[in-house]
Design a protein around this nucleic acid. Structure first.
Lengths: 192, 192
DNA sequence: GGCAATCCATACTCGTCCGTATGGTTACTG
DNA sequence: CAGTAACCATACGGACGAGTATGGATTGCC
């Protein structure tokens, strides 16, 4: 019942700090990323931190890069492996809608877009996802420009949903209502 | 060529501070709302501030309430005055898409949803707008639950667009492209 | 023109957080 | 079992921002 989630650890690595940083970002946002707070949470002091990282900024950078690398799930490859292109969109929507945990860091980063360090990361990640979405729409039968615009619309709806629902807790939607919303979204945004 | 935007002002009122606060929030976010910075921008010192407000928190509160009252444009009443219900949605979309300035505070507040003071304000404002949207969709012919879900989707797309485009500068979209996107959005999200 | 009330400046205190300096402790290695 | 490298604690310096104290300036009013 220590302050740390993993109480029995003797020595830490840089990766441990990065993971802890991402967890803290997901919980309280980028602004709450303070080295003394992190150290307390890990059961050590600042002395440890400044051995692994030159500065707080360096930790943020490392954590972001780590997230960008490993955070991009294999969802993409799994979806692309599906034989029927028209079946990919509904599957993608339902998947994303029901896996909330992996999106918490993205939602937190979305609120830190004034921070110079997160902007390029978010730009790259969002760009890749949008291109992926655009491809799916093209393979589902949309013309190139239509596919691009539909991808923009879909991704904007995704981002907005993140903000409105588990950052703001807007209309405390029930499970059944939520499922109905997802199906409505599929019906509205899927061609055909 | 002073530091202040309006150099020739002798005495300030509480409303002046609130307006300046909202301007600063729109420009640099809620986190940048510091009293000394604000004072510099207004050409005075902290001594002035603490006469008008008991604390920084009080200023934020007052500014948010001011924004909630006067920020809700008369767009709503203008749209509702339109005779043809089916013509309201395209008009609303085009309007919102081309008036960027009034949405800058909303976008900034969207990034401050971890702050306890902004959450209730944003909840109320977003709720009202969603209800407004839901009504329009119903009047355009959608069934009640369909109208609600479509309103959710539309509003999420709006919120997401704010984040992706003038917070992140995502794909530096051109004017023509943007107009095409808006029309695509109208075609996709408008019933019939 | 004098007197309050209003408004603002200056000069502090205090807490927080980043970063540094330095010495101690644990683990690895020959 | 040394000795060296990796890891961590303690203590400090300094920047920055909120809030307080107090006196000065300005405005409106009688």
């Amino acid at each position: 019942m220590n302050a740390s989630a993993k109480p029995e650890r003797t020595r830490l690595s840089a990766e441990d700090w990065e993971d802890a940083a991402l967890k803290l970002i997901a919980d309280q946002g980028v602004g709450a990323l303070a080295v003394e707070a992190l150290a307390r949470q890990l059961g050590v002091t600042k002395g440890s931190f400044y051995w692994h990282f030159r500065t707080r900024e360096a930790l943020l950078q490392a954590a972001l890069e780590r997230w960008e690398q490993y955070g991009e799930r294999e969802v993409i490859s799994q979806i692309e492996a599906m034989p029927d292109p028209r079946a990919r969109l509904p599957e993608l929507f339902r998947r994303v809608a029901h896996e909330i945990a992996p999106h918490r860091v993205y939602a937190a980063l979305l609120k830190a877009l004034d921070h110079p360090q997160v902007v390029p990361v978010m730009a790259r990640v969002s760009q890749r996802r949008m291109e992926f979405l655009t491809n799916i729409y093209r393979e589902a039968g949309l013309a190139p420009d239509e596919a691009l615009n539909r991808a923009r619309l879909t991704y904007a709806a995704y981002v907005g949903f993140l903000q409105l629902n588990f950052t703001l807790g807007l209309p405390r939607i029930s499970h059944e209502e939520f499922d109905a919303y997802v199906e409505h979204m599929i019906k509205t945004l899927t061609p055909g």
